[in-house]
Amino acid sequence: MHFQSLIEAIKTRRQNLAVTQEMLSELSGVGLRTLKQFESGKGNPTLETLQKLGNALGMELMFAVKELNVNE
C-alpha cells in the first residue's frame, strides 16, 4: 500500500467511527500534533506510531519490508 493510501485509510476509518483527532490521540497514545501532521500528509510517523493508530481504530496493518542486498 502506498504511504498516501495508508494515511487516507487511517483518516477515513477514524471519520467513519466518528472518532475525533483528540479522541484518537488519547486512545492511541500518539500526540495530537503528530496525528494532525500525519493526517495532513506532513511528518514522518514511525512504524510504532502507525501501529498504535491502527490498533486504536481496530485496523490490522501489515508492513512489507523490502530485502536489501548489501555487498560485503
Rank of each mutant, 00 (worst) to 15 (best):
K36E: 04
L47M: 14
S40K: 10
A64T: 14
L27W: 06
L24A: 03
S25F: 07
Q37L: 08
T12D: 02
R14V: 01
N16S: 11
F3Q: 05
T20W: 07
E39F: 04
F63R: 13
K66T: 04
R13W: 00
L47H: 15
E60Q: 13
G58C: 09
M59E: 13
F3I: 09
E8A: 05
T46G: 09
L24P: 02
K11T: 00
N71D: 12
Q21H: 06
L35V: 06
K36Q: 03
K36T: 05
L27S: 07
M1C: 09
R13A: 01
Q37M: 03
Q51V: 03
S5K: 12
L57I: 01
I10S: 02
M1R: 13
G58I: 05
A56D: 08
T20I: 07
N71M: 11
K36V: 02
L17V: 01
L50P: 04
M62G: 15
E26D: 08
L47Q: 15
I7F: 05
T12R: 04
K36W: 10
Q15C: 02
T49H: 10
L6K: 13
Q51N: 01
Q37G: 04
L61S: 08
T12Q: 05
I10N: 02
T12F: 02
H2S: 15
L17P: 09
E72Q: 10
K42T: 10
T49W: 08
L57V: 00
F38T: 03
K52E: 14
E67L: 10
E60K: 11
E39K: 06
T49D: 12
Q51C: 00
T34C: 14
F38S: 03
A18D: 14
F38K: 01
E72R: 08
V70P: 05
E72A: 07
A18L: 14
G58Q: 09
L68R: 10
L32V: 03
T46Y: 09
T34I: 14
F3V: 09
L32E: 04
E39I: 05
F38W: 03
N69Y: 11
G58L: 03
K52M: 11
A56Y: 03
L57K: 00
E48Y: 13
G54F: 00
L17Q: 06
S5T: 06
V70C: 08
T46N: 12
T20N: 10
K66I: 11
G29S: 06
V19W: 09
N69S: 09
E48R: 12
I7T: 13
L32R: 04
G54P: 01
S28T: 06
M59F: 05
R14Y: 00
L68G: 13
E60N: 12
A56S: 09
E72N: 08
S25Q: 13
T34D: 15
R33H: 08
L53R: 01
M1V: 11
A18E: 14
T46D: 05
L61R: 07
L6V: 15
